[in-house]
């Protein structure tokens, strides 16, 4: 192991500790029976929180499935929309480029509540309110700006030489994109997709307004539990809620590892 690898490993381990430590009390609370100040650990343990999630009427399974389906669809759509935008903005210079970027960023600059109230009225008239599809559409509002901007910076770092070489060797524009560009930007696409997934996964207010309580997602259960007084139920939901972020971290640890040839940092460097 060379020096660079070791310091990167330490940095990743530190990141892992920083990410997981705040989750530790949540994990403890989710199995706690009695836990009162000033005890360091719960005085007794129970599965009450987990039983409550699986009890009939809790709608927990439905909520997790809805959240997963919506987040997966939003990820795919946000990447498909953000990729051409990022490619154009990252590789070409044109007049009023700043204005275009500003417009793309507008949805995350304007408070979502303000714009969603108006969207809600339109969606009611279009019959999209209270449907999964409507919730999916409204989740694109905060996610597409992120995928577009992340992919812009990914494309901005590229010189286009490899595509040129491919074109010289007889590849069509589509072939060059498919066989050369896409594999090269794949790690960037993965990061953008991860962002979109986590943003959609954690949406509360947009889902409540457009889904109107009919489309139940995990954050809705979490928020309504958190507005109550039962820390066990809230923590149990929070643990499940945090899982995708933990999984993402583990994946990053696995694939971001500089020693790994298939890692993000390894790809794209012609050395």
């Amino acid at each position: 192991m060379d020096k660079r690898n070791r310091s990167a490993g330490i940095a990743l381990a530190l990141a892992a500790v920083l990410v997981t430590t705040p989750l530790l009390p949540l994990a403890l609370w989710s199995f706690a029976g009695e836990w009162r100040f000033p005890d360091l650990l719960p005085a007794s343990w129970s599965l009450r929180g987990w039983e409550a999630l699986l009890a009939p009427g809790s709608r927990f399974t439905e909520a997790v499935l809805n959240s997963l389906v919506i987040a997966a669809a939003v990820t795919a759509a946000a990447v498909v929309i953000g990729l051409p935008a990022g490619m154009a903005l990252g590789t070409h210079d044109f007049r009023l480029k700043g204005v275009v970027i500003f417009i793309i960023l507008l949805p995350i600059l304007v408070p979502p509540l303000a714009s969603t109230m108006g969207i809600h009225l339109t969606f009611i008239r279009l019959g999209l309110a209270d449907t999964m599809f409507g919730v999916f559409l409204v989740h694109l509002v905060p996610t597409v700006p992120y995928t577009a901007i992340i992919l812009t910076s990914v494309f901005a770092e590229r010189t286009g030489e490899l595509e040129e070489a491919a074109r010289t060797l007889g590849a069509g524009p589509w072939q060059a994109f498919w066989h050369v560009t896409l594999p090269q930007v794949a790690p960037g696409v993965a990061v953008a997709g991860l962002f979109a997934f986590l943003i959609s996964w954690s949406q509360y207010i947009l889902t409540v307004l457009i889904g109107g309580g009919t489309v139940i997602t995990l954050p809705m259960l979490l928020f309504s539990a958190a507005s109550g007084t039962d820390p066990v139920i809230t923590s149990t939901l929070a643990v499940v809620f945090a899982l995708p972020a933990v999984v993402a971290l583990l994946l990053a640890l696995r694939y971001l590892n500089p020693g790994n040839e298939r890692g993000f940092l390894g790809v794209g460097k012609v050395s």
Partner: peptide, 28 residues
């Protein structure tokens, strides 16, 4: 079917919007 809301006013706001948009068949 019990639908949990974290604040009852969320449901009232939803109804206000539906009233404004003239939606005659709601979900609550």
């Amino acid at each position: 079917v019990r639908t949990p809301v974290s604040d009852t006013s969320d449901a009232v706001n939803k109804l206000l919007n539906e009233k404004q948009a003239g939606r005659e068949e709601g979900t609550i």
